[in-house]
């Protein structure tokens, strides 16, 4: 395939987003001692990883990938993660909060808030400290949620990974302030200016592999709190009289399976997904049970160190 043919597949809009993100990713490699890329296996992580591979070609990205494993991810996600790491030839670090395991924290009995706090937020902080990372890439986008709209591309974290909205640095032009002291760190969001549409358009244009869970398929599900929860293994306790039924469903966002709601859908290909999204009447986070706990809950989680 020649470069001209490939280039023509990106719209000017996507080409511009791609160039901006590549610039951001290179900036981190050039400015930090020990960066890491958080890889959460979802479509945004997939795009971010793809951009990183492009940024350093013909070399490899000069940083490892890291996954915070709550042990409750869909089995297909874990299989996909390992296959991707092998395919791209990058080091993959996996961390699970051992204290959370010892305490028996899980999304079903502990509730989504505590599970997220212990197995994601605390686990992430542990992992960053364990390997001494001073910069961590995340795939968050500003269009995802209101409190994200004010997030910097280079988001400053104080000692203990604290996020203080008032300590955030003004970001002018693309002159990122990468200066930190010992014990401080930066979270970097190369996809800040992407929307959900852009991500899927780019996945299609660049032929980026994504977890099959995004595509509609008959899967065993049960109805919980108005959404479909997939019975991914036998750890999901069934309520009396509840039996899994096979339905054509897919996921718009992926996380811990008991917390990820599926939507009924026939969209089994990328163009189908994009068409469905354009007609959608609900936001992608709607399927995420953690956001609905309380108003401004994302801001609270971020203050505590959530990505």
């Amino acid at each position: 395939m020649t470069s001209i043919e490939r280039k023509s597949r990106l719209t000017p809009h996507l080409a511009r987003l791609e160039a901006e993100s590549i610039g951001i990713i290179r900036e981190v490699a050039a400015s930090f001692r020990r960066p890491v890329m958080l890889y959460s296996i979802g479509k945004d992580s997939g795009v971010m990883l793809h951009l990183a591979l492009k940024a350093f070609a013909p070399g490899k990205p000069p940083f490892p990938l890291m996954h915070i494993d709550t042990t409750w991810k869909f089995r297909e996600m874990i299989a996909f993660r390992d296959a991707m790491a092998k395919h791209v030839g990058m080091e993959l670090l996996v961390h699970t909060n051992p204290e959370g395991i010892a305490r028996g924290i899980n999304p079903i009995d502990s509730g989504s808030a505590l599970h997220t706090q212990v197995m994601k937020t605390e686990a992430l902080k542990q992992a960053l400290d364990k390997w001494g990372f001073d910069a961590a890439f995340g795939g968050a986008r500003r269009d995802e949620e209101k409190s994200r709209a004010k997030e910097r591309i280079f988001s400053f974290r104080g000692p203990g990974h604290s996020w203080d909205p008032r300590a955030q640095r003004p970001e002018l032009w693309n002159l990122f302030n990468t200066r930190i002291r010992e014990g401080e760190s930066i979270r970097v969001f190369p996809l800040s200016n992407w929307t959900e549409y852009d991500v899927w358009d780019y996945v299609l244009a660049e032929d980026i592999p994504v977890v099959p869970l995004y595509f509609a398929k008959r899967r065993p599900v049960v109805k919980r709190s108005g959404t479909w929860i997939m019975v991914d293994d036998d750890r999901l306790p069934l309520n009396p009289g509840e039996t899994p039924e096979m339905r054509m469903v897919r996921f718009r966002t992926l996380g811990c399976y008991p917390l990820s709601g599926a939507v009924e859908s026939e969209a089994a290909t990328l163009p189908d997904i994009i068409a469905e999204m354009r007609a959608a009447k609900t936001s992608e986070r709607q399927g995420r049970l953690i956001d609905t706990d309380e108003e401004a809950s994302m801001e609270k989680k971020k203050r505590e160190g959530y990505f």
């Binding site: 470069s3 490939r6 791609e18 590549i22 610039g23 492009k54």
Partner: peptide, 16 residues
Amino acid sequence: IVTADGDLAAAEAGQA
């Protein structure tokens, strides 16, 4: 002019 998608015949403002 090297990119992941192959060498380019030219590059202009905005391209990484």
